[in-house]
Amino acid sequence: MRFPRTRRDPVEVNLTPLIDVVFLLLIFFMVSTTFETRQALELELPESVSGVAAEVSPVTLVVTAAGDYRLGDRELSAAGLGEALAGEAEQARRHGLVLEADGRASHASVVRALDQAGGLGIRQVRIATTEVSSTQAETP
């Protein structure tokens, strides 16, 4: 007696749902991840009541409380400030220079930075401040 063989379809794994899930996970992690490009620096920026939010500038000069300077990722002394700023001068002339001076920095350090920027033809300089909280604004 011959039994008829049942014909089986070949088994195929459908990868489309798996690929969809992988792409969804990839998009989720890309959206939820934050990228920090700047190193943390503890600055106490001066406060301003009348300040407005400014657009981000690609050239930011930081004056620390000790009177040192930082341009991008480079630590600078007062002597090296001029030539380092000269390297970024063209971009600073186009987009402006943001000066983040610590509230404890000496006035001379800030004026030195402004003088170097003015000597290189950088006319658009913004000084970064922090917003005054409502409780501090009300006290005399």
Rank of each mutant, 00 (worst) to 15 (best):
G67N: 02
A128E: 13
G87L: 01
S50L: 14
Q116L: 10
D68A: 08
P140V: 05
L81Y: 05
S77A: 04
A137Q: 12
A84H: 06
R126A: 15
T130W: 10
V111H: 06
I27R: 02
E44L: 13
D102C: 05
T37C: 00
Q136V: 12
V125A: 04
T130K: 15
D20K: 06
L43D: 08
V110C: 04
A108F: 12
S57W: 05
G80N: 12
V132S: 09
V52P: 02
I127T: 10
V22A: 14
P10H: 01
R112D: 11
E44H: 14
A79T: 13
D115K: 11
T60H: 08
S133H: 10
D68F: 05
S50D: 15
V13M: 00
D115Y: 11
F29H: 06
G51W: 08
Q116G: 02
T130E: 15
P4K: 15
G72K: 00
L114Y: 00
P4G: 13
T64V: 09
R5P: 10
F29T: 09
T37S: 04
A92D: 07
I27S: 07
A66Q: 12
V110N: 04
L18K: 00
I122D: 02
P17Q: 01
Y69G: 03
A65I: 03
L76T: 03
E90T: 08
A105K: 07
F29W: 14
R7Q: 08
P4T: 14
P4N: 14
G82M: 10
L25S: 07
E36W: 12
D115H: 10
E12S: 06
R38Y: 09
E36S: 03
V22L: 15
P58S: 02
S50Q: 14
L99Y: 12
A92C: 08
T16W: 11
D115Q: 13
F35A: 04
A65N: 04
R38G: 09
